[in-house]
């Protein structure tokens, strides 16, 4: 454990053995009742969402609502421009020729869905985030190479420097470390 020269404690970090070890650790941390914790691995791991007890993301629903709003807006805009604000008869067809508006409506529906998915994903993930306290750990860089880590954040209501560290050690965590920084 690093010495407490800095003021603030961010998290407790522990390293585990491979994907199977990390999955098992995630389940145990989840079952212990921790909520503000994260798993770090060099690549995505199948079944991690369930092991961490994560709920399904709301991105799909937000994207669906944005898609609907985009389509409604596009249809309204075409109606307003071609039938209300600047009525112009084109090839003898009715001013509100909804058939011709389907394509733009479809296009803007897709655009609405895509923008909704992209931005709601960023917001829900709290991105972009340039710095996180966990970066203070000298060991943490391994997560992008061959390290499998569990971090339990200090904001978790159950967090207690000593107890949490002891718990992570008891479920097989190596290099258990209280991450502190400015």
């Amino acid at each position: 454990m690093s010495t407490a020269t800095a003021k603030r404690t961010y998290a407790v970090l522990a390293e585990f053995e491979g994907t199977a070890g990390l999955l098992k650790a995630a389940e145990q941390v989840r079952d212990k009742g921790y909520r503000k914790f994260d798993c770090h691995s060099p690549f995505p791991i199948h079944g991690m969402d369930a092991a961490m007890g994560l709920k399904r993301s709301a991105v799909g629903y937000i994207a669906g609502i944005c898609a609907f709003l985009g389509g409604a807006f596009a249809l309204w805009l075409q109606w307003w421009t071609s039938a209300v604000d600047y009525p112009l008869v084109i090839s003898g067809k009715p001013l509100f020729s909804y058939q011709a508006f389907v394509i733009v409506t479809f296009g803007v529906t897709v655009l609405g869905g895509a923008l909704g998915a992209f931005f709601s994903m960023l917001i829900i993930n709290r991105l972009p985030q340039l710095f996180h306290g966990i970066f203070y750990s000298p060991n943490f860089g391994k997560f992008s190479d061959d390290g499998f880590f569990v971090s339990i954040e200090a904001e978790d209501p159950q967090f207690d420097e000593k107890e949490t560290a002891a718990f992570l050690e008891s479920i097989g965590g190596k290099n258990v470390e209280v991450v502190t920084g400015k």
């Binding site: 090839s91 067809k93 058939q99 011709a100 389907v102 394509i103």
Partner: peptide, 12 residues
């Protein structure tokens, strides 16, 4: 189905 209908509607 729409692609088929649309071109015929447009061409008239």
């Amino acid at each position: 189905g729409f692609a088929q209908y649309f071109l015929i509607w447009y061409g008239n």
